[in-house]
Each structure stands twice: as C-alpha cells, then as structure tokens.
C-alpha cells in the first residue's frame, strides 16, 4: 500500500480507539461531578458519589448477589464445557457435527430470544424466577464458549502424555485428573474469567429470569429508567474497573497458553 493510505489507516485506527474510549472516559468523569444533574460542563468535583456507593448496603448486596451468580455459573460452565469438550474432541462418531452444532447453538441465538425461551423453559421445569433460573440461563449461554476453548487446547495435548500415564498404571479417570486437567489449566483459567465476565455483564437473561432481587446490570437499568444521576456513574465505574481487570487477566492467561503450544 502507498504511504498515504497507510497514514490514512493509522488515522482511522486511532479515531476508532477514541470512539471506543471517549464515552467511557466521560462516564467515569461524570461520577465525580458535584451536582445531581447529569450534563456538561462539570464545574465542581467530588468523591461523594463513590463514597456513597461503597456505603450503600443495597448496592453491596446486589454486587454480592451478582458475584454469587457469576461464580456458580463459572463453576458449572467449566465442568460441563470440559466434559463436552473431552467427549467431542478426541472421539469420532456419526452425528458428531450435529452434536457440535447443538453445543454451539446457545451462542448464536439472539439475546432476547435466548432469554425468552429460557424464561418459558424455567416455568416448564418449575424453577421460580430468581437465582437458580439465572444461573441455569447463564450456564447454558456460557457452555459453548468453554467447550470451544477447551477443545482447542485439548487438540494440542500430545497423545503420548496419556499413553505414558496409562503405562504407569493410571486408569482413564486418574489419567484425566493427573494429566489432562493440569494440561488444560491455562484454558480453564481463561475460559473461566470469560464466563465470569459474560455472567456479570449480562442484562437480558438476568432481566427476564430474575425475581425482584436485581443483578448489577438490572439495577443500573432500573435506576436509569427513573432518571440519570452521578450515582449510576459511580456504580458503573466500579463495574468497569472490575471487568477491565478481569478481562486483561483472562487475555494474559490465554495468550500464555497459545505461546506455550507454538
């Protein structure tokens, strides 16, 4: 490519970065505004909104509730996803492609339809709206991602590792726990953090499957509908910082895993 198109493209890249970051930076700034009215310009600054959030027991409860859902979801998704991957990965059988497609299905269904169908299904299974229903919904949504990540990692596990374990007297269960699982560790960490992010950030499933106790995104949504306030900015900023840290951590462990296999 010529020099001018090259410069043009770097301008487009940086413009895109600005487009991604500016709204978030503005949102964080607004949380420091010393006025209940959302809008520019910001004339006076304060920490009060943030202090308020950390002292608000309702917000803290909602945060803990969301965390509990995210952790349970992550655990279940990892177990189920790994099981599906260790079945789909190494074995060849008729209809494998169909099972694979079914595994990926929840990941490609538009969010609202996924939420509605799970709401109906929870009613059918007699699960009341609330924590259990949300955990089920999030797990269904997350399993495809875990399966894909674990399958990719499994494909790089040398057959000789398992064979050696078998030669040394391990049966397939022991071989799985002593050889396969340690080998999968980086994939499980990466996929696990990704699951936590997906669950913690999810709105539409939590909204339709939840009871009166909201998750954090549902709480922010409810507050937004009754009017903007810097308090929402403060809550959102806390969420933003948490997710960014988790995301960078996930990215690092996945990157390390890819490097290890090259």
């Amino acid at each position: 490519m010529t020099r001018s198109t090259r410069i043009l493209m770097s301008v487009i890249y940086w413009a895109f970065v600005v487009y991604l970051f500016v709204p978030l930076i503005l949102m964080v700034m607004m949380g420091f505004k010393d006025s209940a009215f959302i809008g520019f310009p910001i004339k006076a600054w304060t920490f009060e909104w943030y202090l308020g959030v950390f002292q608000d027991t309702k917000v803290i409860n909602v945060f803990l509730y969301s965390m509990a859902i995210a952790l349970s979801t992550t655990f279940l998704s990892l177990v189920i996803g790994t099981w599906i991957a260790s079945f789909l990965g190494p074995y060849k059988f008729p209809g494998k492609l169909i099972v694979f497609a079914l595994t990926c299905l929840p990941a490609v269904i538009p969010g609202i339809i996924s939420a509605i169908s799970l709401r109906i299904y929870a009613r059918f299974l007699d699960i009341d709206p609330g924590m259990m229903a949300i955990i089920l919904g999030h797990t269904v949504h997350n399993v495809p991602f875990v399966t894909l990540v674990v399958m990719a990692r499994l494909a790089t596990l040398p057959k000789s590792h398992i064979e050696a374990a078998r030669d040394l007297g391990a049966d397939s269960i022991v071989a799985f726990f002593r050889v396969t699982l340690p080998y999968l560790r980086p994939a499980l960490i990466g996929a696990g953090i990704f699951c936590m992010l997906l669950s913690f950030d999810d709105f539409v499933r939590a909204f339709f499957l939840g009871s009166y106790q909201p998750t954090l995104p549902v709480l922010i949504f409810a507050k937004l509908r009754s009017g903007m306030s810097p308090e929402i900015n403060a809550i959102s900023t806390v969420v933003l910082v948490m997710t960014a840290i988790l995301g960078i951590w996930a990215e690092r462990s996945m990157r390390r895993m890819n490097k290890g296999t090259e």
Binding site: D201, F203, P217, L240, G247
Partner: peptide, 9 residues
C-alpha cells in the same frame, strides 16, 4: 478493554 464492559454500562 472497552469491549469487556457490559451492555448496560
């Protein structure tokens, strides 16, 4: 990084 932040935020 901005991509990890949720839909609502």
């Amino acid at each position: 990084i901005p991509f990890w932040v949720g839909e609502i935020v």
